[in-house]
Deep mutational scan, measured.
Amino acid sequence: VTTYKLVINGKTLKGETTTKAVDAETAEKAFKQYANDNGVDGVWTYDDATKTFTVTE
């Protein structure tokens, strides 16, 4: 299990959150659900070296 980070650069929501997941794909699903629940819809990137997803509106 690895800790992944999400950086949110939204129009109305900015911040960070983390999740523990077995792989990046599982973390991405959780983060996309989180973003959707919070009304954030943007461009996604992922940096494997830092295990960090970024979504920018």
Rank of each mutant, 00 (worst) to 15 (best):
E57R: 04
T56W: 08
N9A: 10
T3E: 14
N38I: 15
T50N: 07
W44D: 00
T12N: 13
E28I: 11
W44Y: 02
Q33C: 06
D37Y: 07
F31G: 00
K32Q: 08
L6M: 05
N36M: 15
T3K: 09
A21L: 03
A30K: 12
T2H: 14
K14L: 08
N9Q: 15
E28W: 14
A35C: 11
D41L: 15
F31D: 00
F31Y: 02
D48Y: 07
Y4G: 01
E25G: 10
V43F: 10
K11P: 08
D37L: 12
T12V: 11
A24Q: 14
G15R: 10
V40G: 02
T2Y: 14
K20N: 15
D41V: 15
T17D: 03
T52A: 03
K5L: 09
A30P: 02
T3P: 04
K51P: 00
D23I: 03
A35Q: 02
A30N: 10
K20S: 15
T56D: 10
L13K: 10
A35Y: 03
V40R: 02
F31M: 03
Y34S: 02
T3N: 08
K51N: 08
Q33W: 05
G10V: 11
K32M: 08
E16Q: 12
E28F: 15
T26V: 07
V7M: 07
T50F: 04
G10S: 12
K32T: 04
T26S: 14
D47W: 04
L13A: 09
A21V: 04
T54A: 04
D41Y: 13
T17W: 14
N9W: 13
T52D: 01
T19N: 05
K51T: 04
Q33M: 10
V7A: 04
K11E: 08
T50H: 07
E25P: 12
N38F: 14
E28L: 15
T54W: 10
A35M: 08
A49F: 11
T26W: 06
V7R: 06
L6E: 00
D37V: 11
K32L: 08
D48A: 14
F53K: 00
T50G: 04
T45C: 08
K29G: 05
A27D: 00
D37H: 10
F53Q: 00
A27G: 02
A30E: 12
K5I: 13
Y46G: 00
T52Y: 03
F53P: 00
N9M: 11
V55C: 06
K20F: 14
G42R: 01
D23L: 05
E57G: 05
V43W: 10
T12H: 15
A30G: 05
F53D: 00
N38L: 14
G15S: 15
N36Y: 14
A27T: 01
D37P: 01
E28V: 08
Y46H: 02
T19D: 03
G39V: 03
F53G: 00
G42A: 02
K32G: 03
T52V: 07
V7I: 15
T45Q: 07
D23E: 04
Y34R: 03
Y46A: 01
V22D: 08
G10Y: 06
E28N: 05
T2P: 08
Q33E: 11
K14T: 11
T18Q: 11
E25A: 14
K14G: 06
F53V: 01
T12S: 13
T45G: 06
V43H: 11
N38D: 03
F53R: 00
K29N: 06
E57P: 08
E57N: 05
G39A: 07
A27V: 03
V40Y: 08
Y34E: 02
V22I: 13
V55W: 02
A49M: 10
V43I: 10
A21Y: 04
T2L: 13
E28T: 04
Y34A: 03
W44H: 00
K51W: 05
K32I: 09
T45L: 07
V1Y: 13
V40S: 03
G15T: 14
L6C: 07
G39Q: 09
T56V: 08
A21D: 03
F53H: 02
K20C: 13
G15L: 14
T12M: 11
T56K: 04
E25Q: 13
Y34V: 05
K20Q: 15
T12A: 11
T56G: 04
A21K: 03
Q33S: 09
D47S: 06
G42H: 02
Y4W: 08
D48C: 05
E25C: 10
A30I: 13
T26C: 07
K51L: 08
V1D: 15
Q33T: 08
D47P: 00
T2F: 12
N38S: 08
V43T: 10
T52K: 03
V1N: 10
F53S: 00
E57Y: 08
T52R: 03
T56F: 07
G15E: 08
V1W: 12
A30V: 15
T2Q: 12
F53N: 00
T26H: 10
D48N: 08
